[in-house]
Amino acid sequence: MNDSVRHRAAGAALAALVLGGGAVGCTKGAPEESPALTPAAAVAKAAKKTEGITSLRYRMTGKVPEQGKVGGEVAMSMKPLAMSMKMTSGDQAADGPVEIRLVGKAMYIGGGAEAAKDMGGKHWIKFDMSAMGADKELNADQLGAGTADRNPAAESAFLTGSKDVKKIGAETVGGVRTTHYKGTVALDDFRKSLKGENGTTREAREKSLDQYAKMGVDSLTMDMWIDGADHTKQFRMRGTADKGPLDMTVTFLDYNKPVTVQAPPAKDTADLAEMMKGLKEN
Score class of each variant (00 low, 15 high):
K126H: 02
A15G: 12
S193T: 10
A116I: 04
L220C: 08
M129Y: 05
R57C: 08
D230R: 14
L143M: 15
D271I: 03
T184I: 04
A157S: 14
R101G: 01
A10K: 03
R238A: 15
G111Y: 00
G90Y: 01
V103R: 00
P265S: 13
Y212H: 11
G96T: 06
L37V: 13
T88K: 01
R101W: 00
T54G: 03
R238V: 15
E99A: 04
A170S: 12
M119D: 01
D227N: 15
M1S: 12
M248P: 03
K257C: 05
A9L: 13
T221D: 07
E73Y: 05
P31T: 14
K117H: 09
V261I: 09
G71F: 02
V74G: 02
T200N: 14
R101T: 00
D3C: 03
S156M: 14
P80K: 04
D230M: 10
S84G: 06
E274N: 10
D149Q: 11
E171M: 10
G11T: 00
F252K: 07
G96S: 02
S193P: 05
D189K: 14
T147I: 12
I100G: 03
G169T: 09
K277G: 15
A145V: 03
Y58F: 15
A148S: 14
G111Q: 07
E281L: 12
H180V: 07
G196C: 01
G22N: 11
K182C: 09
L253A: 10
K167H: 09
A75L: 13
P65W: 07
A9S: 14
G120T: 05
H180G: 07
D3Y: 13
D210Q: 14
A40L: 08
D128Y: 11
G71P: 00
V185C: 05
I100S: 11
G21H: 09
V176M: 12
L81A: 06
K277L: 07
K28Y: 07
